[in-house]
C-alpha cells in the first residue's frame, strides 16, 4: 500500500541518518582507542598509516597510571566536577524557578547580566580572580576550581533550568496549593519529581563544563597532585614531542565516566520529560 511504502521509505531514511551520525562519532573514537593501543613508533610512522594496531601494546595505559598518576587526576576531576554539578543544580533549581514563575522588576536586566557574564572573554576574568583567590588562600586548592566552574556554568544552567520549569503547567502547582501545600513543599514534592529529567540534564551540563575545562585548571593549580585530567593530558605535549599514545589513552580514560553518565542520563531526558505532559 502507498501508506506503508511511504512509511518504509521514511524508516529507511531515518536509519540511514542514524547510521551516518553513528559513523561520525564512532570513527574518531575508534581512532583514539586504536591509537592508544599502538606503539609510539607505529603512531608517528609517516610512511604508513595503520588502521588497526599491528603491534598491540598496553604500554601507554601502564605509563599513564604508573608514571603520570592518572588515578589522582581522575579523582581530582571527579571531586571538582561532581561538587560543581551538585551545587549548580541546587542553585539553578531556585534561580530557574524564580525566573520562570515570577515577573518582577529588573528581570530583564538580570537576564542580560547573566548573558553578559557569558560574553566576557575568559582571560579578562581569570587574572582579577587570581588576585581575589590568592587573597582568600584558595590558590592551589580544588575549591578555586569549584568556584570558578560554578560561576562560569551557573548562568547557563539557570537559564536552561528556567526553560524546563516553563514546560511544567502551572495547574500542577495550583492543585497542590489548593491541597494546602506551601510553596516549598509543592516545589519539592510535586514539581521536582516531574522535573527530574531536566534536573539530571542540568547536572550533566554543569558536570561536563567542569570536566573539560583546561585554562583555569592550569592557572589556579600549582602542584601536579591536584591537576585535573585535561591539565594532566596537556602536560603530555612537550616542547619537542607529543606523547600521542599516552595522550590517547588518557582521552579514552576520560571518556569512560562520561559515557556511563550519558547512558544514565539519556534514559531520563528521553523518557522522562514526557512525564510532565502525561501527568497534566
Amino acid at each position: 500500500m502507498k501508506y506503508t511504502a511511504k512509511r518504509r521509505l521514511g524508516n529507511l531514511g531515518r536509519g540511514l541518518i542514524l547510521l551516518i551520525f553513528m559513523l561520525l562519532v564512532i570513527l574518531p573514537i575508534y581512532w583514539m582507542i586504536i591509537s592508544s593501543l599502538k606503539t609510539n613508533a607505529e603512531i608517528i610512522n609517516a610512511q604508513q598509516v595503520t588502521y588497526y594496531p599491528h603491534q598491540m601494546t598496553g604500554e601507554n595505559y601502564t605509563q599513564l597510571f604508573k608514571l603520570y598518576n592518572y588515578r589522582q587526576m581522575l579523582t581530582n576531576s571527579l571531586i571538582v566536577s561532581i561538587s560543581t554539578g551538585l551545587c549548580i543544580t541546587l542553585l539553578s533549581i531556585f534561580g530557574g524557578y524564580g525566573l520562570a514563575r515570577y515577573s518582577f522588576r529588573g528581570k530583564d536586566t538580570m537576564l542580560l547580566f547573566f548573558l553578559v557574564t557569558q560574553m566576557i572573554p575568559g582571560i579578562l576574568v581569570i587574572i582579577p580572580l587570581y588576585v581575589i583567590f590568592s587573597k582568600l588562600g584558595l590558590i592551589n586548592t580544588r575549591l578555586s576550581l569549584f568556584f570558578f566552574y560554578l560561576i562560569v556554568n551557573l548562568p547557563f544552567c539557570v537559564i536552561t533550568m528556567r526553560s524546563f520549569f516553563e514546560r511544567i503547567p502551572y495547574t500542577l502547582e495550583e492543585a497542590a496549593y489548593v491541597d494546602g501545600c506551601s510553596k516549598m513543599t509543592s516545589l519539592v514534592r510535586i514539581i521536582l519529581p516531574v522535573m527530574f529529567p531536566g534536573i539530571v540534564a542540568v547536572f550533566v551540563f554543569a558536570f561536563i563544563g567542569a570536566w573539560n575545562e583546561l585554562i583555569a585548571g592550569t592557572i589556579f593549580i600549582n602542584t601536579s597532585n591536584l591537576w585535573t585530567v585535561p591539565v594532566g593530558l596537556k602536560s603530555l605535549i612537550g616542547k619537542y614531542d607529543v606523547k600521542w599514545g599516552v595522550l590517547m589513552a588518557g582521552g579514552v580514560g576520560a571518556l569512560i565516566p562520561t559515557a556511563f553518565m550519558f547512558a544514565f542520563m539519556q534514559k531520563f531526558v528521553v523518557e522522562g520529560l514526557t512525564a510532565g505532559a502525561v501527568k497534566e
Binding site: 590558590i139 592550569t218 592557572i219 596537556k234 605535549i237
Partner: peptide, 25 residues
C-alpha cells in the same frame, strides 16, 4: 621546597598571570 609545575604549552601564560598578581614562585 615545594615542586610546582605547569604544562609547557601554558607555561608562559601561567607565569604572566602569576607575575601580574605578584605571586611568582
Amino acid at each position: 621546597v615545594v615542586y610546582e609545575s605547569v604544562p609547557w604549552d601554558d607555561a608562559a601564560n601561567k607565569l604572566t598571570v602569576l607575575g601580574a598578581s605578584n605571586q611568582l614562585p
